[in-house]
Amino acid sequence: MAKYQVSKSIDVRGEVCPIPDVETKRALKDMKPGEILEVWIDYPLSKERIPETVKKLGHEVLEIEEVGKSEWKIYIKVK
């Protein structure tokens, strides 16, 4: 069973900054409060930058889950 009720998922693996940040912001803009965005990344700097950006936008980072060697999923709750 999934940890979160994911409303939307984006996969930006293989991309480097600023693409993961830009795509995350674009996805969040189209979402409603309470929905959860799942972001797949493999660029280590994005693991730091995306949560900072999300918090500045007023949303909540629920979890950064390591899913492989240099691969993560970031769960973001839209506020």
Rank of each mutant, 00 (worst) to 15 (best):
V54N: 06
K29Q: 12
W72T: 01
I64Y: 00
T53N: 08
D42K: 08
M31D: 08
D42V: 05
I50H: 02
A27C: 09
A27R: 06
K47V: 09
A27G: 09
E38Q: 15
I50A: 03
P33A: 10
E48V: 13
T53P: 00
G68Q: 10
E35D: 14
L37T: 07
S46V: 00
V61M: 05
H59I: 05
V54S: 05
G68M: 05
V54F: 09
E65P: 03
A27W: 02
R49G: 07
E71G: 00
K69V: 10
G68E: 05
I74H: 04
S70E: 15
I36K: 07
K56T: 09
Y43S: 10
T53S: 12
I36L: 11
E60I: 14
S70V: 09
L28E: 04
L57D: 09
E35L: 10
K29A: 14
G58Q: 08
K55Y: 10
I76A: 02
Y75C: 11
S46M: 05
K32C: 05
G58V: 08
E38C: 14
S70L: 12
I76C: 02
G58D: 04
I41P: 01
V54A: 11
K56L: 14
H59P: 05
R49F: 07
A27P: 08
G68T: 03
K73C: 03
R49A: 13
V61F: 07
E66P: 01
R26G: 01
